[in-house]
Design a binder for these strands. Structure first.
Length: 137
DNA sequence: GCCAACGTTGGC
DNA sequence: GCCAACGTTGGC
């Protein structure tokens, strides 16, 4: 089991839209490192859904719903996409400021490499964020 | 709106 | 293959 953070600007694709659709294909990743992460995803992996922009915070939990496959919106088949499915919203959104304030989370890519759209967490970090979100799976 | 961080492009 | 210039992202 692996853990991830995927992010989106709410103006582009919001958590609200995701909840309405229940499942979506995470297309449009055009960054090598992010794409590598998608390639490593396995069905059942868990992830946080993060909103960038005016109010940057983690808003929900989702899971990987299948294997990665070539992104049909890309002109090169090396770019991958994966299907992700809503699990639930977090009880309390976790602000980026709060994440940055927690020593155990200061090393995560979300903080260190803000522009990476798909990043990895270990179980400890995932559980810690769940706690901050006052949410149980 | 500004700026830092990072990726990409293109000249050499 | 290096590096400067430029574009994009995203926090503040």
């Amino acid at each position: 089991m692996q853990y991830w953070i995927i992010k989106s600007e709410p103006e582009t694709y919001s958590w609200k839209t995701f909840v309405k659709e229940k499942k979506t294909s995470w297309t449009g990743v055009r960054n090598y490192e992010a794409c590598n992460n998608i390639a490593k995803m396995r069905p059942g992996d868990l992830m946080f859904f993060y909103h960038s922009g005016a109010n940057p915070c983690i808003v929900g939990i989702a899971k990987v719903a299948g294997e990665a496959y070539p992104d049909p919106t890309a002109d090169n088949p090396r770019w991958l996409t994966v299907d992700v499915q809503v699990i639930k919203a977090v009880k309390v959104p976790v602000d980026l400021a709060l994440i940055k304030a927690v020593p155990e989370l200061q090393s995560i890519k979300l903080v260190k490499q803000g522009r990476l759209s798909v990043s990895e967490l270990d179980k400890r970090q995932f559980d810690l964020i769940l706690t901050l979100a006052q949410t149980k799976l």
